[in-house]
Computed example of a mutant assay.
Amino acid sequence: MKARVATVVGSFLLTVGVWEGYKAVGNPDGTVVFGTRLLPRADDLAMPHVWTMVGRLFDPDVAGGPPVWRAVASAVLVTLGEVAVGFALGAVVGVLLAVAMQRLRVIERGLLPYVIVSQTVPLVALAPVIAGWGGALSIGPYPWQPWMSVAVVASYLAFFPIAVGVLRGLHSPTEIEVDLMRSYSASWWRTLLTLRFPAARPYLWTALKLAAAAAVVGAVVGEISTGTRGGVGRLLIEYSRSATSDPAKVYTAMFGVAALGLLVTALVAGGERLATPAVLRGDRS
Rank of each mutant, 00 (worst) to 15 (best):
L180M: 10
D61G: 06
A275T: 14
P277C: 04
P277F: 10
V5Q: 04
V68S: 01
L195F: 11
A158E: 07
R201S: 13
G110F: 14
G218T: 07
P247Y: 08
A91W: 13
V8Q: 00
L57P: 09
T191C: 06
V72E: 03
R201L: 15
P198L: 05
G134V: 14
L193R: 10
L104V: 13
V78F: 12
A71I: 09
L208P: 09
R281Y: 13
A91V: 14
A215W: 06
L236W: 12
P247R: 01
L126F: 13
F12D: 03
L210W: 03
L137C: 06
D283A: 11
V78G: 02
I224A: 00
A200T: 12
L45K: 10
L274S: 08
L192R: 08
R109G: 02
Y114K: 01
F255T: 12
F12T: 10
V78Q: 01
L137W: 15
L89K: 07
T120M: 12
G35E: 05
K23L: 01
V121C: 03
M148V: 14
W133M: 14
A154K: 00
V76R: 00
R182G: 08
I176G: 02
R182M: 08
Y156T: 14
L236N: 12
A163M: 05
P173L: 03
R105M: 05
T228N: 11
G21Q: 05
P122I: 06
G231D: 08
R56V: 10
